[in-house]
């Protein structure tokens, strides 16, 4: 299976995501101007400051040609993981509900945090246990998850909150301590913590590796029984 990592002008964690994905499967970069994804099974929209993010994080990247291909991929049930700026881009593109607002307090924050797995049944978390705590760093300026109350209730009711910051670990004032969510169909996930920076104890922790392993396992499973989503 192959991961495809989008590369926008201003992407910063594209190579990090590439390295992390290559620990579990094949992976290559996908240029923002490409209109086709080719043989990619899982799209990763990486962290960074796409197009400088001077307007609103992710607001310009959603119009990139490659994002149209990502939307088609998601429409067809393909897996998409948005990390940090990628999460912001997926929200801007309407592939995930809600929005990421500037942190409370209004500062960039880079910190190791713990998140709790709230749904271990998704394609992104099937290698984890419900309630498992993962140590993963965050680093962002606009990571405060927001959605209107009805949307939040709907999200929670359908198990859409996949990762929640552990008590005392919410670094940005996110609603309901939300760190990561999944789409209604379960094939698109966005999260603010950086799992690609948590794949090796030497550089801090390996709490993020479970997400990449889960994705690899999910694709392999789909290949074996192509009719099950």
């Amino acid at each position: 299976m192959t991961f495809g990592i989008l590369q926008f002008p201003g992407s910063c964690d594209d190579r990090d995501a590439l390295l992390a994905c290559r620990r579990v499967a094949e992976a290559r970069l996908v240029w923002h101007a490409d209109v086709e994804l080719g043989d990619v099974d899982v799209v990763v929209v990486p962290g960074g400051f796409s197009y400088g993010d001077y307007l609103r994080a992710g607001a310009i990247a959603r119009f990139a040609p490659a994002m149209e291909a990502v939307a088609r991929h998601a429409e067809a049930g393909g897996l998409v993981l948005g990390i940090c700026n990628g999460f912001q881009v997926l929200c801007e593109a309407g592939l995930l509900p809600g929005a990421l607002l500037p942190n409370d307090p209004l500062r960039f924050v880079c910190r190791q945090v713990e998140v709790v797995v709230e749904n271990a049944e998704t394609a992104f978390t099937r290698g984890t246990r419900l309630g498992q705590r993962l140590s993963i760093p965050v680093k962002h300026q606009s990571g405060r998850y927001f959605a209107p109350p009805e949307q939040l209730s709907e999200l929670e009711a359908r198990g859409g909150t996949v990762l929640r910051y552990a008590p005392g670990h919410n670094p940005n004032g996110s609603a309901h301590e939300i760190a990561g969510i999944v789409s209604e169909r379960g094939n698109v996930m966005g999260l603010m913590p950086h799992p690609e920076h948590a794949v090796d104890p030497l550089t801090g922790s390996e709490g993020g590796l479970a997400i990449f392993n889960s994705l690899a396992a999910s694709v392999t499973r789909r290949e074996r029984s192509p009719l099950s989503a």
């Binding site: 910063c12 190579r15 990090d16 924050v109 880079c110 550089t203």
Partner: peptide
């Protein structure tokens, strides 16, 4: 101060 800086991008940082 240093929490306002990304100290880990590029995946090389062994001691933060």
């Amino acid at each position: 101060a240093f929490e306002q800086y990304d100290s880990i991008v590029q995946s090389r940082t062994v001691r933060r």
